[in-house]
């Protein structure tokens, strides 16, 4: 069984909010010098989902694939250090294309070259653009069924069974392989790379494909007009009494005065 996991390299979403800065002249996020880019956390959880399947199906092979600049090798290496078997870099713009149609088209061409495959896993959305468009697009372009927002993914008898997160519950969905599944944060924390796998990672196969090799001009579907950080105008009043009782009293009075309770 072959599982492909599509991942993306992004600016670390966990950095201090004060370091997040947008250059409004160029409509782009200013890179924080010195802070390494990371794998998008939802994609990291997709690798986790793949590795959990591999634990039950040891013959499964997990291939991590990304569209990005040479620096994106770092996120592929991260996947290999977690336990994936192979990696493919599809060379393209740093942090991929912002147009989901372009990304899906380029990735689908690359994935066709990796056929046959059984399952494609990826994060529910990238944690930078937060669009959640590419995965469904990939499935459409490849003509395979897809299931979104998985909490768990199991493979058996040529099918994949997904616990899919709904607004108010779950549903258990079964589709025939090959299929695509997007993984939601409810999958739980991804494993950390361990040193042994990390040491092995540099000896695992990592291919690099120039984009023109796989690109099919998809044509832009959208244009970014403006990127900005909304202004917050809030001031926090800290309430602190000398004891928990007093603090509670101050809070409740305040809320009562403001007719909030």
């Amino acid at each position: 069984m072959k599982i492909l996991v599509c991942v993306k390299q992004i600016q670390d979403p966990e950095i201090a909010p004060g370091l997040f800065k947008v250059d409004e002249a160029s409509n782009s996020v200013v890179a924080v010098p010195g802070i390494a880019q990371v794998i998008s956390p939802y994609d990291e959880q997709a690798i986790e989902a793949a590795l959990r399947i591999k634990e039950k199906t040891p013959e499964a092979k997990v291939v991590v694939i990304t569209l990005g600049a040479a620096s994106a090798r770092d996120v592929l290496k991260h996947g290999l250090s977690m336990g994936a078997d192979e990696a493919v870099l599809v060379e393209g713009p740093k942090n991929g294309s912002a147009d989901g149609f372009v990304t899906a088209s380029v990735l689908s061409e690359a994935i066709k070259k990796l056929a046959p495959f059984d399952l494609i896993l990826t994060g529910r959305q990238s944690a930078d653009l937060d669009a959640g468009v590419v995965a469904c697009g990939l499935a459409e372009l490849l003509g395979i069924p897809s299931v979104n927002f998985a909490k768990s993914v199991d493979v058996s008898d040529g099918n994949v069974v997904v616990d899919r997160v709904l607004d108010n519950g779950f549903e258990k969905i079964q589709v025939q392989l090959p299929a695509l599944v997007t993984v939601s944060n409810e999958m739980g924390p991804a494993r950390k790379p361990n040193l042994r796998e990390t040491m092995k990672a540099s000896r695992k196969p990592m291919q690099s494909w120039p984009q023109n090799d796989v690109n099919k001009d998809a044509g832009a579907s959208q244009e970014l007009i403006r990127l900005y950080v909304p202004i917050k105008e809030k001031h926090c009043e800290i309430i602190g009494g000398t004891s928990a009782g007093e603090t509670a009293q101050m809070l409740v009075r305040k809320l009562r005065d403001g007719r909030l309770i």
Partner: peptide, 16 residues
Amino acid sequence: RVCYGGKARSVLRLSR
């Protein structure tokens, strides 16, 4: 639209 984990907003022109 909301992006960058809620930190930013982007304005897109949808051309198709």
